[in-house]
Computed example of a mutant assay.
Amino acid sequence: MRARTRVRVRQWDPPSTKRVLDLTLGSALLALAAPLLAGGALALAARRPPGGVLTRSPRVGLNGHVFVLRSLHTRRLRLDLLSRLPYVVRGDLSLVGPEPLAPDGEDGPRIEGGTCTPDSGASPAARHWRQELKPGLIGLAQVRSRSGMPWDEPALLDQHYAEHHGVGLDLAILASAAHASLRGAVRGLARHGKARLSDTDHRLSGYSTAEEVDSVSTD
C-alpha cells in the first residue's frame, strides 16, 4: 500500500487594521515625499557633511528584532522623519508607536521627539512591553511632550499608549501631528514675510525721504 502523505497548508493570517493603515497611508506619504527627499539628499551630498548624508543607528523593533535605522542627516522640513517612511512600508516601524530605542549596551544618542538626546536607558520591564509593540515613526510622546507637564514625560506617554493603543488613538495622534506641522509651517512663512516688510512698503508712490524732512522742519 502506498503511504499517504499529508500536505500541510499554511494558513494565511490577514493583516491587522493597523498594518493596513501603515501600508496605505505610509505608501501614499512616501510617494508624495519622494521628490522632497531626493532633493534633500542631493543638497546634503553637495555640502558633504562630516557624518554623511544618512545617520545610522541600531534600534529594537517588534519581538526584540534589531534593525539599523537610517535617516537623512537634517531636520529641515522634518526630512529626517520623512526619510524613515520606507521602514513603515517594510514593516520595521509603524506610523504610530513608542519611540524606537537602542539595544542594551549601545552607546550614543537616541532620537526622542525628533531631537537627539543622551540615551537614558529603560528598565527591563519597560523594554519588555516595548518589544510587544512595533515602534513608531511618531508617537504620543512626540505630540504631547512639548507641554512641559510632569505627566507628559515621554516614558509615561509611551506607556499610556501601550495600554490604550488602537486605530482610533493612532488616527488622533496622526491628526494632531499633521496639525502641528501645518501650524508650524504657516508660522514660519508669516515670520519670513514680516521680516521682509519695511515702512517704505506702505508709502504711496512718489513719496520721498526729502518730503518727510521738509514736513518735520516746517513744523
Rank of each mutant, 00 (worst) to 15 (best):
T117A: 15
L204S: 08
P100W: 09
R76L: 09
A155L: 10
T115E: 15
P35M: 06
A210L: 13
L204F: 14
D158G: 11
G61I: 02
R10Y: 10
A172F: 04
R130E: 06
L54F: 02
L157E: 06
L30M: 12
P58I: 03
D92C: 07
L72D: 00
H128P: 02
L54K: 02
D119L: 02
R19N: 08
E106M: 09
D219I: 14
S181W: 13
G136P: 09
A102K: 08
S27A: 11
L44W: 04
L189H: 11
H202N: 00
V7S: 15
A126Q: 06
H165D: 11
G113E: 03
R76V: 10
R2T: 05
I111C: 13
L174W: 05
R130A: 05
L197R: 05
R8G: 14
L169Q: 14
H179N: 03
A177S: 10
A28R: 09
V66Q: 08
D152M: 01
M149L: 15
S16C: 02
S208R: 07
A210G: 09
H179R: 02
S147L: 06
R183A: 10
V167E: 03
H179G: 01
Q159W: 13
P118H: 08
R191Q: 13
R196W: 14
G168W: 10
Q159C: 15
S16R: 01
L69E: 05
V9Y: 14
N63P: 07
A41H: 03
S120D: 14
G91I: 03
E106Q: 15
A180C: 00
L156H: 04
D13P: 07
R19C: 08
Y207P: 09
V20H: 13
L101S: 03
L81T: 01
G188D: 09
A126E: 07
E106Y: 12
E153S: 00
Q11L: 14
P35W: 09
S57T: 11
L23H: 07
H128K: 12
G26Y: 02
L69C: 12
R78V: 08
L93W: 06
L54W: 02
E112C: 10
R144T: 08
S208V: 05
T24M: 12
A41Q: 04
E132I: 10
T55Y: 04
P50L: 15
G64S: 15
L69K: 04
G91W: 04
A178G: 07
E163K: 09
V167L: 10
A46T: 12
E211K: 11
L157P: 06
